[in-house]
């Protein structure tokens, strides 16, 4: 087992999901509640990583980060080095790549919060921002957890984007999926099998936790309704 790749992967997935929480909450709020008529365009952009080949996404991210682009030059002048083929660059790419996995469940949860609770909060003198944290998020925690865990799990398994943007630098940008690819290239099938099995099991366990968790939430609500009926 390549523990260095395990560490890199975990670090990347954690950083990505934490940043996605920070970006994903406001973006999801906007997607769920904006009445802008062109909103669907933004929704389509957010969903693009679901359908685009990771290499295409990675290619554009690479261009945007590169010294030819104003964004890339600006980062380089601030940080002293470019984004491509660094861990930071990988995090940026992963955030974009996993964005729909965070935004879609969270926005769906926000959107299903009954509007009367939001209006009730306003009518009790509570601001929009405070209503977000005191009414909308608490009633959407299953969706928020799902978004957090799915973006973590999705980042664990990414390959194309990582390869395009991060390259294959041991200890910096070589993640588990790339490690598996390398092992297969070297005909080290037993090593590839071990790492693959581990990714498979970890992903399965994480997804089971998410779905079980959502189901328990559902049971809890049904249980409460049942008590009300009695």
């Amino acid at each position: 087992m390549n523990w260095q790749a395990v560490a890199t992967t975990l670090k990347l997935a954690s950083a990505t999901s934490i940043i996605l929480m920070i970006i994903g909450l406001p973006v999801s709020y906007w997607v769920a509640f904006s009445k802008w008529r062109w909103k669907f365009l933004v929704e389509a952009v957010v969903a693009l990583p679901l359908v685009l080949p990771p290499t295409v996404l990675g290619f554009y991210i690479l261009l945007a980060m590169g010294p030819q682009s104003p964004l890339g030059r600006r980062y380089e002048s601030l940080a002293g080095h470019g984004l491509p083929f660094t861990f930071e660059g990988l995090v940026v790419a992963s955030v974009l790549y996993s964005l729909p996995f965070a935004v879609q469940p969270i926005a769906a949860a926000f959107g299903s919060v009954d509007r009367k609770f939001i209006e009730a909060s306003w009518m009790l003198g509570v601001s929009n921002l405070e209503t977000f944290f005191r009414v909308i998020v608490p009633q959407s925690w299953a969706g928020v957890m799902t978004g957090l865990v799915l973006s973590f799990a999705h980042t664990l398994g990414e390959f194309g984007v990582v390869l395009m943007v991060g390259g294959n630098i041991p200890g910096v940008t070589r993640t588990l999926s790339i490690d598996i690819y390398d092992q297969v290239q070297e005909l080290n099938y037993s090593g590839a099998a071990r790492t693959s099995a581990m990714l498979l099991i970890v992903s399965f366990v994480i997804l089971s936790i998410v779905y079980g968790f959502n189901r328990k939430v559902w049971l809890f609500a049904a249980d409460r309704r049942h008590r009300q009926d009695v």
Binding site: K116, E119, A120, S121, M123, G125, V126, P138, Q139
Partner: peptide, 18 residues
């Protein structure tokens, strides 16, 4: 709405379930 000194009772009361 926040700045209006009103007490709005919603049709189904809208008590926060959480």
């Amino acid at each position: 709405p926040q700045k209006r000194p009103l007490g709005y009772l919603f049709q189904e009361y809208a008590l926060f379930p959480h």
